[in-house]
């Protein structure tokens, strides 16, 4: 049997379970929504209808959607 150097972790009171991970995921969703609202406000109010800003908005939401999708798929596998 191989010695597991991380075996001491099983003695910790906090055990990772799907409930905690869903909570972490939910926290990040909330953080994303709040900051996205703030960024959108700035881009719409001060962006002067600039095409660069419009492009940045698209890239931002596409990238965010990708990361959230990967996180959700990984969470579903746990």
């Amino acid at each position: 049997m191989v010695n597991n150097p991380l075996s001491f972790l099983s003695g910790f009171p906090l055990q990772l379970n799907s409930g905690i991970l869903f909570g972490v995921f939910g926290f990040f969703i909330a953080l994303f929504l709040v900051i996205s609202a703030v960024l959108l406000y700035h881009w719409r109010t001060y962006g002067m209808k600039n095409t660069t800003i419009a492009f940045a908005e698209t890239i931002y939401f596409l990238g965010s959607a990708l990361f959230l999708f990967v996180a959700l798929i990984s969470l579903a596998r746990l």
Binding site: L16, F25, L31, S64, F67, L68, A71, L75, L78
Partner: peptide
């Protein structure tokens, strides 16, 4: 592996 990808995806989002 799934836990790593979950945490890594959230790190990248941040």
């Amino acid at each position: 592996s799934a836990l790593f990808w979950l945490l890594y995806a959230l790190w990248l989002l941040l």
